[in-house]
Simulated scan of single mutants.
Amino acid sequence: MKGDLLIAASALLAPCSALLRFGCARLTVQRLDPLVNPGVNPSPHLHQIIGGNSFNVSMDPKSHDLAALSTCTSCQFSEDFSNYWTAVLFFKAKNGTYKRVPQRAQQGMEGTQGGMVVYYMTDALFDTAQKSSVTAFKPGFRMLVGNVQYNNRDEARNFRQLTYTCMQNEGTRAPESIDFPDKPCPSGIMANHRFPTCWDGVNLDSPNHQDHVSYPESGTFESGGPCPASHPVKIPQLLLETVWDTKAFNNKADWPADGSQPFVWSSGDKTGFSSHADYLFGWKDNSLQKAMDGHTYVSAPSLKTQNIAAQNKCTVKDMVGEDIDSCKLISTSTGFIADVGRRAT
């Protein structure tokens, strides 16, 4: 089996009840990163962003209240003005051209433009009772999972369960690997980002956006591992699923002549080990805590919802001024240069 199988197949194939699971449409795709590179325009590499439309270049944590400043959200739950983002996936063909890989909606969410599926959980996904208590994130809370500089398996293991699923069909959820799949995936590549689930209870952020949170002291969130003494507060398991629609790139005749896999993150990483995601909390009032305390099903009756058409309408303006499908994109952090839609240089 390729890679590390980090979660049992039964965990992801069991009924998805007693947790929050919802779709979010694409808010924007731009070279901006107000968490790691606040005020930098353009940021070092391209990101795909979902959530509240107060997203911008800076988002000063001392003054930027996402819930108060946003007038819409691209997420199904209309009280969630949080922002979530990941890097963008590219395909490098044998002839050297780069093409941006589109995102697609999951089954039951057809019509959603790009975006992701978001989970908030109080227990393991397969434990439909979801009886545990968690402390919802507080206003101003931010975190980052993964490291854009990582390029090998040992480094990637520092972040538990940042994985890829080579989808054979719409229901495929296993096995998972921590590097890019090396074979064509008939239904696309799902990127899975699971965030740490323990908090120090004091800091809403930290200089590297990671030290204020922690994984369980042993095991994983799914296995019920305890939080360490340094980070004693249990927070919801936040999981992002992005389905990259690779079907148009499954002709192996277009793949590199040496047989290597052809997908590249917008940071320039060809291994997949640099997978990372950012989160800025922005739920209105105490709506998320109420939903977590309710131990209810996916529908979360305490939360307000909106239809897919409304989600798709929520976007933000282009703040960078790039045609991301026909221009040269440069990752200043890695030196990666891609002439998108043209022959690579």
Rank of each mutant, 00 (worst) to 15 (best):
E79K: 11
V340A: 06
T122Q: 02
R31S: 13
R153L: 10
T97A: 08
N307S: 13
A129N: 05
T197R: 01
M116K: 13
C166T: 12
F137Q: 02
F336N: 09
E241C: 11
L144T: 11
D182S: 06
F77S: 12
L144W: 05
C16A: 10
K313W: 09
S287M: 04
P102F: 09
W265Q: 14
Y84V: 15
D254V: 01
Q30T: 05
K62N: 13
P44Y: 05
T112E: 06
F263M: 00
K313H: 11
V264F: 02
P232V: 07
I330Y: 12
P175E: 12
V101Q: 02
S287A: 06
A300Q: 15
T315S: 13
L6I: 14
G52V: 06
K313G: 11
G171E: 13
H295A: 02
S266V: 06
G268C: 03
V148T: 10
S133Q: 09
W199F: 07
M167E: 13
T305Y: 06
A8E: 14
L239F: 05
G171T: 14
V145Y: 00
S70G: 09
G188M: 07
D285R: 12
T163R: 14
G201C: 05
T128L: 01
T112P: 00
Q149S: 07
T28K: 07
F126C: 03
W244Y: 15
S43V: 07
V233T: 14
G111M: 13
T71Q: 12
G146C: 03
D254T: 13
G23R: 11
Y120A: 03
M109F: 14
L144K: 11
N307P: 08
T97C: 03
Q48H: 15
